[in-house]
């Protein structure tokens, strides 16, 4: 089974990389971009028997730093 895990910065946490990407989009002439937040996407192949708790544990213990990041798990 394939699982996608999205890791994003929590609201309110400054994202200097997102800001730089935002500026770069502006300098390429793309108008109307209000904000950019950069994040991470993990595509993981797991056994079909993998539980939600196990996926949650992977996020909490390694994939996300919950001090600064939120995560969302999507089973495909």
């Amino acid at each position: 089974m394939k699982v996608r895990i999205f890791v994003t910065l929590k609201p309110g946490v400054l994202d200097p990389q997102g800001r730089a990407i935002h500026h770069a989009l502006g300098s390429l002439g793309f108008e109307g971009v209000d904000d950019v937040r950069a994040g991470k996407l993990f595509e993981i192949e797991v056994a079909d028997t993998t539980t939600d708790e196990q996926l949650d544990g992977m996020c909490r213990q390694l994939l996300a730093n919950t001090v600064i990041e939120n995560y969302r798990i999507e089973r495909l």
Partner: peptide, 17 residues
């Protein structure tokens, strides 16, 4: 040490990049 949970908080990319 922050990632290991021995100290609170996190160290992020420098604000000026």
């Amino acid at each position: 040490l922050t990632e290991a949970g021995l100290l609170p908080g996190a160290l992020m990319r420098n604000a000026g990049l």
